[in-house]
């Protein structure tokens, strides 16, 4: 049978409080099938707490979250519906990878040959019967992914899957995540790195201080935030703006009154100014990176700021 249309994660007013501190603050979101939904936020924003609540591991203080229309603990055979990689190396170091997957398979009546299949899938055949305590972080991550895929679930959660991996491992996980979504599965991936999300996610949920601060299509987000522009300062900026607008370029204003010209190269702008005998005091290309867009978005919601930009006055 194909993937059910209902294979999704839905949170409504989902809340988690620890004492008087609110880690997740009444958030609403939906994670849909056939796409990778990136869950982006700075450390401590509530990503892992939210994912643990999806998995029924942490109890919400308010609201709720369902997977395929049910609370996680009401799923008749959870591993067949949801697979998760929540933390690297959450395995007993004395047990082999094979035996780890074997007990896991037994809980949900998954046949033994599927254990061999997923071991092959993540490339752990050579070490499957060795004690997992000696595994590198990358191998532990592969074992975690094998566990997530064991029941061939329609919904997958990955919490910071590329953390601490080497470039090969990172590329492997990216490809895997993309292909799982391409098969029609619901894929929910958290990260604190915008650059990582830009490469893997189709849809973006940005969380900061426990609140959803953006719920947007990835392509839209990139289009809106990554455009480069040319910054132009001129004592005759009004005339210059008029002249540039005549050429069909979009003109904006920076906070200090400088012009932001989109769609033109510095050479073209310089030529226009020269042809009209206008003075230029600055002509520079500004590349707004996605990372900066993300920083701006979450600037108010970062839990712990490093105070390097503002030296503390002496003698205070």
């Amino acid at each position: 049978m194909g993937r059910s249309v209902a294979a999704m994660i839905t949170a409504e007013r989902l809340t988690k409080r620890y004492g008087d501190k609110t880690a997740v603050d009444a958030i609403d979101f939906t994670v849909r099938p056939g796409a990778v939904t990136g869950f982006l936020g700075p450390n401590g924003a509530g990503k892992s707490t939210t994912m643990r609540m999806v998995m029924g591991l942490d109890h919400p203080s308010g609201g709720g979250v369902t997977v395929n229309g049910r609370a996680y603990r009401d799923l008749p055979a959870p591993l067949h519906e949801v697979g998760a990689l929540l933390e690297a190396k959450a395995i007993h170091g004395g047990r082999s990878a094979y035996n780890h997957l074997l007990w896991l398979a037994k809980t949900n009546g998954i046949p033994r040959r599927r254990v061999d299949e997923v071991i092959g899938l993540v490339g752990l055949e050579a070490v499957a019967h060795k004690r997992s305590g000696g595994f590198s972080l990358g191998m532990g991550q592969r074992l975690g992914i094998a566990a997530a895929l064991l029941g061939d679930p329609g919904v997958l959660l990955f919490d910071e899957p590329v953390n601490g991996l080497d470039p090969e491992g990172i590329r492997w996980i990216r490809n895997l995540i993309r292909s799982l979504a391409a098969e029609g599965r619901t894929v929910f991936v958290s990260s604190h790195l915008m650059s990582e999300m830009a490469l893997t996610a189709d849809h973006l949920l940005v969380i900061g201080r426990g609140q959803i601060i953006a719920d947007t299509d990835m392509a839209d987000f990139i289009a809106r935030n990554s455009a480069a522009y040319v910054r132009v300062r001129s004592p005759q900026s009004g005339v210059l703006a008029e002249a540039l607008r005549d050429r069909g370029w979009r003109i904006g204003r920076d906070d200090d009154g400088a012009l932001k010209v989109e769609g033109a190269t510095p050479e073209q702008i310089g030529d226009v100014a020269g042809s009209r005998n206008l003075y230029l005091h600055e002509l520079s290309v500004v590349n707004a990176s996605l990372e900066e867009a993300f920083m701006r978005l979450t600037a108010d919601s970062v839990e712990y700021h490093a105070r390097t930009d503002q030296p503390v006055p002496a003698g205070v």
Binding site: M1, R3, S4, A7, L75, P76, A77, P78, H80, E81, T107, N108, G109, I110, P111, R113, R114, E117, G120, L121, V122, G123, L149, G151, D152, P153, G154, W172, N175, L176, S179, L180, E183
Partner: peptide
């Protein structure tokens, strides 16, 4: 290591029939 393009699936694909907790 492994091209993840095709994920071999077990006989019951996403269907929990018979495989209950």
């Amino acid at each position: 290591l492994t091209p993840p393009a095709s994920i071999p699936a077990p006989a019951r694909r996403g269907d929990a029939g018979g495989a209950r907790l």
